[in-house]
Amino acid sequence: MDVTRTARTLAGSVAAAAGRVRPGRAGGAPPPQQTLTFTCSPADVLAAVRDAAVWSQVLGDLGRAELVAPGRYRFTPASPADAEGVDTELRESADAVLFDRSGDAPPLVELRVLPAPQDRGTEVELSLDLPVPDLAAGAATFTVLYRLRALLQTGEVPTITPQPSARPAQR
């Protein structure tokens, strides 16, 4: 048995697992990506995500977006309450929309589209570079992408806020 090799493999696995639960990207690893298929066309998806109001709607409880100048967008997280917005610049290509931060930081938002097979619409890949552990970032990215698909396909974002319950805050 190659103990050294086994130990290295084990250490690599532990490091990878740690990278999924600790904030920040280890070794410049890309942010988690989520992919869903939308029934609408690639053009419709790309057009929608140029609209800051669409981002605010799909971010919902997570934050908001605003157009601060032509081609310049500010994304502000919902918490903490005094969180500063992140200024970004829209960069587009035929199959992608990216919101770039200044300096060397990777794009805050990277959304790519490609036609889905069998006329199923559009495969949409989304990455959000969020300052949270990968597991949380992955869940948040999935939530945003799921909401975006719902909005584009139905005109609504699914929500249970507000709704009745017997929790003290709602009495």
């Binding site: 869903l36 298929t37 029934t39 199923r120 619409g121 869940a139 948040a140 999935f142 939530t143 799921y146 698909r149 719902a150 396909q153 139905t154 609504e156 699914p158 929500t159 249970i160």
Partner: peptide, 27 residues
């Protein structure tokens, strides 16, 4: 059901792609 997603169009309504606000918890 939303009635408009791929699964609803294929009459698989309980598999609706758009009506679960906590989809990330179930995925």
């Amino acid at each position: 059901a939303c009635g408009s997603c791929w699964h609803c169009r294929h009459e698989q309504y309980s598999l609706c792609d758009t009506t679960n606000p906590n989809a990330a918890a179930q995925q």
